[in-house]
Simulated scan of single mutants.
Amino acid sequence: MKTIFVFLTTGFEEIEAMATVDILRRAGLDVKTVSLTGNKTVVASHGVPIVADLLFEETDFSKAEMLVLPGGTPKYNDHEGMKKEVLAFANKGEKVAAICASPMVLGGLGLLNGKSATCYPGFEQYLAGANLQTSEAVVVDGNITTGRGPGLTIDFALKLVELIAGKEKRDAVAAGLLVN
């Protein structure tokens, strides 16, 4: 089984990261959190410390099925190693997902050129070349999935389950969460 890697950096949005990890794991998928800070304990946007499964430096991305960037901070854009991995992964046609502020990373890498995408209000200017769908909770265009923000994380995570494990698994997880 391949692994879904969810990146964590100082100031990440707790809901977007942890609810996504939770929902993907409820679907029986292999998910690992990856710290970009050089320390396994990463402090989120509201001061909650989270212990990541792996450090970026020790992660074998050849085992990746999907790369996920939660939002909450533009600091994701500062990690050159992560951006290099995301770009190479996406350019091979592999699945990349970003929510809230993090689609700005994809925009900066040129991955949204000609693609439909959404983001947190105010970050549209960073989605270079994208066909903006800012009223949508989640937008999938080819191998790129973008989400709007924290209150829509369940929609985002369930869409990721559907993309990897199918609609039946997505619906089963949603039912268990009491989501219509």
Score class of each variant (00 low, 15 high):
residue 58 E to G: 12
residue 52 A to F: 02
residue 95 K to T: 06
residue 92 K to P: 10
residue 78 D to Y: 12
residue 116 S to P: 04
residue 87 L to R: 08
residue 50 I to T: 11
residue 94 E to T: 09
residue 137 A to D: 07
residue 108 G to A: 11
residue 49 P to V: 01
residue 96 V to K: 09
residue 63 K to R: 13
residue 71 G to H: 14
residue 89 F to C: 01
residue 94 E to G: 13
residue 78 D to L: 12
residue 53 D to Y: 09
residue 96 V to G: 05
residue 94 E to H: 14
residue 64 A to F: 00
residue 105 V to H: 14
residue 108 G to H: 11
residue 75 K to N: 15
residue 105 V to A: 15
residue 120 Y to L: 14
residue 122 G to K: 06
residue 103 P to D: 11
residue 59 T to N: 03
residue 73 T to W: 08
residue 87 L to K: 13
residue 88 A to K: 12
residue 66 M to C: 09
residue 66 M to G: 05
residue 57 E to I: 01
residue 106 L to F: 08
residue 54 L to Q: 03
residue 83 K to T: 05
residue 115 K to G: 04
residue 114 G to S: 03
residue 56 F to W: 08
residue 99 I to H: 09
residue 88 A to V: 08
residue 107 G to T: 10
residue 141 D to E: 08
residue 143 N to D: 04
residue 66 M to E: 04
residue 139 V to D: 05
residue 140 V to T: 05
residue 72 G to R: 09
residue 58 E to Y: 13
residue 69 L to T: 08
residue 73 T to R: 08
residue 116 S to H: 09
residue 50 I to Q: 07
residue 137 A to M: 07
residue 98 A to R: 06
residue 80 E to I: 13
residue 100 C to F: 12
residue 88 A to Q: 10
residue 139 V to K: 02
residue 102 S to M: 14
residue 65 E to G: 05
residue 106 L to M: 11
residue 81 G to M: 12
residue 143 N to M: 01
residue 74 P to V: 10
residue 73 T to E: 10
residue 127 L to D: 01
residue 98 A to N: 03
residue 108 G to N: 13
residue 75 K to Q: 14
residue 135 S to K: 06
residue 49 P to A: 01
residue 69 L to H: 10
residue 75 K to M: 15
residue 88 A to S: 11
residue 96 V to F: 10
residue 103 P to R: 10
residue 129 G to V: 02
residue 142 G to W: 03
residue 143 N to A: 00
residue 94 E to W: 13
residue 53 D to H: 06
residue 111 L to N: 01
residue 107 G to F: 10
residue 136 E to T: 05
residue 97 A to I: 01
residue 63 K to I: 03
residue 117 A to W: 03
residue 93 G to C: 09
residue 120 Y to P: 04
residue 100 C to M: 14
residue 127 L to E: 03
residue 56 F to Y: 10
residue 85 E to N: 04
residue 121 P to F: 04
residue 121 P to W: 05
residue 96 V to Q: 08
residue 129 G to F: 00
residue 106 L to N: 09
residue 69 L to E: 07
residue 75 K to F: 15
residue 135 S to F: 02
residue 59 T to H: 06
residue 58 E to F: 14
residue 49 P to L: 01
residue 96 V to S: 07
residue 72 G to M: 12
residue 55 L to W: 13
residue 49 P to C: 07
residue 115 K to H: 04
residue 53 D to V: 05
residue 59 T to E: 06
residue 120 Y to H: 13
residue 98 A to K: 00
residue 88 A to R: 10
residue 67 L to Q: 01
residue 74 P to Q: 07
residue 140 V to G: 01
residue 67 L to V: 03
residue 56 F to Q: 02
residue 92 K to T: 12
residue 128 A to R: 14
residue 67 L to C: 08
residue 82 M to K: 02
residue 70 P to Q: 11
residue 85 E to M: 01
residue 69 L to M: 13
residue 125 Q to R: 15
residue 89 F to D: 00
residue 127 L to Y: 00
residue 138 V to G: 13
residue 61 F to T: 06
residue 75 K to W: 15
residue 68 V to C: 06
residue 76 Y to M: 11
residue 105 V to W: 15
residue 65 E to S: 10
residue 98 A to V: 04
residue 122 G to R: 08
residue 103 P to C: 12
residue 87 L to Y: 09
residue 81 G to V: 07
residue 86 V to W: 01
